[in-house]
Amino acid sequence: MHSVLNRGRLWLRVILYMLVFCPLNSKAQKTNAEIVLTNRPLNEKSNEFYIANVVDERPDRSAVAWLLPAPGNLPAVKYKVDLQGGTATAVKQFADYAIPVNKTLRPVAIRIKKLKLTETAMADGRVEGRLEIQLWFELKRDEGNVHLIDYPAASTYYRSTGQQYDTGILVSRALEAGLVYFNRWMNREVDTNIKLAKGVKLIFTDYSEQPEGDTIYYSANRPLTWNDFQEKPRSGKYVAEVLPSFGYTEKVEVVKSVVVVRISMRVFLPKSAAWVKQEGRNSYALNHEQRHFDIVAIVARHFKQALMDMKLPADNYDGYINVQYLDSYREMNQLQEQYDNETSHGTNQYYQQEWNTKIDGLLKN
């Protein structure tokens, strides 16, 4: 009866291509000088996150840019240039200026998968520069980071051989565009994306079926009758048998950053698996079988209460629910076995009355 909710995962990828034509800038990149980023706050305030750390995961971390020198500078081969202070450090400082650190918000990590600027000499005498960037944004959690989205983009510019392009401004704008993109994504997704949820709320209901079919769903107002025993009687020393159990179904939605889990409890007994011999059709035997059903209802309540007492993590609430279900299922089997052993399957009237009293008390509580 336990159904598993499959939740789709959100993968959002946007590739931006920008063709940029820029004249000579007075703050042009100097040959062999480090690239200096332009640190400034974002125009759009971040209310949901801060950048906790930056990790450089580029395959080649020796430099950020491979540039061509100005005419007359020999040898005319590309030279490597890195960000001032190192790539991860510079990007973290840039992010902290853009989005002030507020540790009351969600901590986000940036993984730099690609940040590469390459200049190429063209046949018409110009130089083409191409910047490629790919950032992964992850939500930091104690159990491990959760990937949110990635931001891939590319920019292209052209210059004459007598000019130098301000690579610091170019890289700064690319990083700023990535932060703006992620900030807007967060603002759009924060209320409804399960990856960003901050808490879990459980809502329990008891399932019922109208009209009633082969399956009986437990209700205090619906006790068993001998008409429910529809399976052909089996041979052996026992006069009757029922096979009750319990399960649940889930419906999940995220409301204002809270995972709302609606759990429909199902304490059930199939009529097609219940049987009775003719000589066993009496009120005493029926009570014994009813108590088997009652025990399952009590265990289902234990299952519910155990979950209500937990502080479920938003990123793994279903794992806790599944483990508790298995624990409660074992409890059900153990109690059923204990009940039959102590009452000798209902033939010991003294212990049957003891269990009747015990079960009645648990049902009231």
Rank of each mutant, 00 (worst) to 15 (best):
L131S: 02
G144E: 09
T38D: 09
L67F: 06
G85H: 04
V54P: 03
D96R: 03
A88Q: 05
A90F: 00
V77G: 04
A76I: 14
T156Q: 09
P71I: 07
R159Q: 12
L105E: 05
Y97T: 06
K140I: 15
P41A: 05
V77C: 02
G129H: 04
F49H: 09
Q164C: 10
T167G: 00
T156M: 07
K114S: 12
T118K: 12
L42S: 08
S160C: 09
D82T: 03
L170K: 07
Y97G: 00
A153N: 13
H147M: 12
S46K: 10
K80L: 09
K140D: 11
R111T: 14
G162H: 12
L68G: 03
R106Y: 06
A121P: 15
L42M: 12
T167I: 10
V171G: 07
L74C: 03
V101G: 02
N47E: 14
T118Y: 10
K113F: 05
Y165M: 10
L37E: 02
R40T: 07
S155F: 12
V77T: 14
T161G: 09
N43L: 14
P75F: 00
R141I: 04
Y151R: 13
V146S: 11
L74S: 12
S172E: 03
A76V: 15
K45M: 09
Q163A: 13
A98E: 02
S155I: 06
A95G: 03
G72P: 07
K78S: 13
I133L: 14
L105S: 06
D142R: 05
N39E: 14
T161M: 06
I99E: 02
A65Y: 07
V127T: 09
Y97Q: 05
A98P: 05
G72Y: 00
P100Q: 01
M122S: 13
Q84F: 07
Y165E: 08
T89F: 00
L148G: 05
K80Q: 13
A90C: 06
K92D: 00
R106V: 13
I110C: 04
T161I: 11
I110V: 10
K80E: 13
T104Q: 10
V108E: 04
G162F: 10
V146Y: 08
R61Y: 01
Y79W: 07
V77I: 13
D142Y: 01
Q134P: 00
E57M: 12
G168K: 06
E34D: 14
H147Y: 11
P100W: 01
A153Y: 14
L67Q: 08
S46N: 11
P59M: 00
V127N: 02
K45Q: 13
I51Y: 04
V101N: 03
V55D: 13
K80S: 13
L74A: 11
V146E: 12
L74K: 15
Y157C: 02
V101R: 05
A70V: 09
P107G: 05
L68P: 03
A154S: 14
I112Y: 01
W66R: 15
A70I: 07
R126F: 08
S172F: 06
E34W: 04
T167R: 11
V55H: 05
D150H: 08
P152C: 03
V91W: 02
T89I: 08
R126M: 13
V171M: 03
A90S: 11
E143G: 01
H147S: 15
D142V: 14
I133W: 00
N43G: 15
